[in-house]
Design a protein around this nucleic acid. Structure first.
Lengths: 163, 163
DNA sequence: GTTTCTGCAAAGGTTTTGCAACAAA
DNA sequence: TTTGTTGCAAAACCTTTGCAGAAAC
């Protein structure tokens, strides 16, 4: 995802709603989309303060709401206590999450069949799908078989898309 | 679900862990499984106090943890701010939730195809599935077409299983 | 010049915890 | 009698909000 593209879309969103472009909002958006990693509100606050130490927690929360409302960011439930935010829906609008109960890592995946099936089920029940989410908790095969899990040794972001 | 069966299983769980059977715990379990409806911790507290007015919020939270740990109750995320609990997993271990964005009602559904597909995807990614959840947010067809939604007029519990 | 935005601190809401009295086994 | 449990109140935690000053347009 090009950061510039996100910035453009967010500015368009602000303009459309008669809201203002501020350096704080820009800094927070940049922090949110700097990597593909998921984050909590507090983690985003930390990142944003590295660029502008005066950024307040309140502004982070307020900007997060705007980002979710604009559709740029999605709120996701990883089964942890607090809310996580996912910046990868622009590139992969229909992805889902697999959470490893051993590695504690999150693997994003896409699957056309499951999308289609969800659509069918929803229509059969008399509804029109608007938003779908799948969360799978799973244990690592590799760990069970070889006593170690390669994912644990990785330094890369935990949320690459696999197919 | 026979309430007696739940009570038995919960007592077995307590015994196994060296925990005690108390009237408060019994009352909370009865309240949780009195209907098939989902509930929040506070709603459960209300119900439990109808039977024993002295039941404290703290004990409700502590008992909820035990019920989830024992597998009798599942924590679910309905997209609302707080956690909801679902007592229907004993009868329907693999059910999922469709949340109507118009009616605000929750329809539970099961589908073998989607279960199988989730399993395949998980194994393909190198994992062994332990817990899967699907949440679909959808709008009501009936409402869109006829200007009214029959679900809104229903008084029945909102979480019947449909196939 | 208006109107919105910010940071701060306080308040809100939910969940957890320390503790002394109490109750189950 | 021992050990776990309860209710209470306080604390912890995350998120929202009221407000006065600052900044965008």
């Amino acid at each position: 995802m090009q950061l510039a593209h996100v910035q453009d879309r967010f500015e368009a969103f602000l303009k459309e709603k008669g809201l203002r472009h501020t350096p704080q909002r820009e800094g927070i958006v940049n922090s949110a989309f700097a990597t593909t990693e998921h984050f909590t509100a507090d983690e985003l606050w930390d990142r944003a303060r590295r660029h502008d130490a005066s950024t307040s927690r309140a502004t982070v929360y307020r900007t997060l709401s705007l980002l979710v409302e604009s559709g740029l960011l999605h709120e996701i439930d990883l089964g942890k206590e607090n809310k996580h935010y996912d910046p990868n829906f622009l590139d992969h609008p229909d992805h889902n999450h697999l959470i490893c109960t051993d590695c504690d890592k999150v693997v994003e995946f896409e699957d056309d069949h499951i999308n289609l099936l969800e659509d069918c089920i929803t229509r059969r029940l008399g509804f029109k799908p608007t938003r779908k989410m799948i969360r799978i908790e799973a244990s690592c095969d590799e760990l069970k078989r070889f006593g170690a899990c390669s994912r644990n040794r990785e330094k890369e972001p935990s949320c690459e898309i696999e197919e």
